[in-house]
Design a protein around this nucleic acid. Sequence first.
DNA 1: TCTGGGGTCCTCCCGCAG
DNA 2: TCTGCTGCGGGAGGACCC
Length: 419
Amino acid sequence: MYALIDCNNFYASCERVFNPSLNGRPVVVLSNNDGCVIARSNEAKAIGVAMGAPYFHLKKLFKQYNVKVLSSNYALYGDMSSRVMAILARFTPEIEVYSIDEAFLKFNGFHRYDLHSYGSEIKRTVERSTGIPISIGMAPTKALAKVSNKIAKKFPGQTKGVYVMEDEGKRQKALKWLQIDDVWGIGRQYTKMLQSNNVKNALDFTNLPNEFVRDRMSVVGLRLKRDLEGLETLALEQPENKKAIACTRSFDTMYTELGDLQERISTFASVCGRKLRNQKCNCELIQVFISSNQFREDLPQYHGSISVRLSYPTNSTIHLTKASLVGLERIFRKGHHYKRAGIMVMGLTPDTGRQLNMFRPIDHRQGPLMKAIDRLNLMNGYDLVRFGGMDLERKWKMNRNHLSPNYTTRIDDIIKATS
DNA sequence: TCTGGGGTCCTCCCGCAG
DNA sequence: TCTGCTGCGGGAGGACCC
């Protein structure tokens, strides 16, 4: 059996743990730059706040319903997530942390257990230890555990947040209940295609011929179908090093000058360099992109992107910055208003196994230099040491006008108890 | 005025090598 | 030496997830 554990309205719940005055009140959390709504409490969902809706469209509604608006606080959410995952790992040796607020657990050899009571115990323990409410769905496969989880969430009165799909009757009933656009792995495009073929729910989907699914939705769709049929096809995945690392941002204002973009790209290269070094690997390829504002139809649109291959795999911020600036100069077009930019590093190889270039000798001074810079920055908790191309005057600032304190990761922000 | 960010996997196409 | 077939790898693009 598999279980899918999902934290309810995770970001909003994290905020509520340390600020109980938010209980019972609609709460929303915004994306970077306070752009869109990315998390909603049940109360916010009830007044019709849509996922991904732009903040500036909703300001009036928020005022009307006294909605608490918060900027995203990833330091807090990341720390709360590790606490939840550490507790879940006590209940089974087989766990896959699927996302910041979800984990799959596998119960091999648990046939003597009453899984419903075991699930209730997991739920009680997590909620008591962290304050985060969770829902648990159990079923013979991962895709069905996802379905079970939806049932647990949708019917909290009957399920008390734990649902076990233990027989074929329940599977059929659940798949019939689940609308096709709500199935894990079926996005907008596939929904459109399936609906035009009279597929309304998950059960209709499992009744399609394999050849049709394979042909229209590739092997990914076929695997999903088999998993929904109850045949264990999607296995628990073990964490691996990342295969690509990205740093991209939208800007608070539109840029027209190459110099502004050079500063942003240098900063992104530095972030990617640090992430590569943390993961103890190097990259061979950098992709740089710049984009105009897609929402400004009155302005000419442009999306420029380029891949730059490095002489040898590296994680040196100096090399990464140089290469990405070369790329940027090649894609920059004067006369456009740029709103987004980013870089992605790919072709990652571990420190221990990188292929060097016979004709481009490696600069051995850069490894210790980067290590020293990383240590200085770690000790000071922010970018004390920065490179020339970066924003030395700290002009650029992400909009985070509703940020909560870092209750669990910053000593000055720890809650003080007063009598 | 203001619309996020970071990933994965698969298919298709093309160029290259045997 | 040339041609045609085939397999492989890389890049682009499209689907999806949170």
